[in-house]
């Protein structure tokens, strides 16, 4: 089988890391909001008093936000 030369012009502009950022940012936002809600409606899981949803959600928002902004599609 022949394997023709790859045309770089077919490359799309969205980076894989942008997808990673958007996914983690979206999930992180949902979890972070749930974490805020749990301050007034405490969860029933073990160690819920440590508010893991709030802190983990915040970490994910920061991580996802960084990747989304840093690898966002740019003109040119």
């Amino acid at each position: 089988m022949s394997t023709p030369h790859v045309d770089p012009s077919t490359e799309k502009s969205l980076s894989i890391w942008f997808f990673v950022g958007v996914l983690i940012l979206s999930c992180g936002l949902i979890i972070f909001c749930q974490g805020i809600y749990e301050f007034s409606h405490p969860g029933t899981t073990v160690l819920a008093e440590l508010h893991p949803a709030f802190w983990w959600g915040m970490l994910m928002v920061l991580f996802g936000g960084f990747y989304t902004i840093n690898f966002r599609p740019r003109k040119g």
Partner: peptide, 15 residues
Amino acid sequence: MVRYLGPGLLGLGIT
């Protein structure tokens, strides 16, 4: 997962 992860976090784990 069920022991430690509440709503939201459990969804993340299952996903």
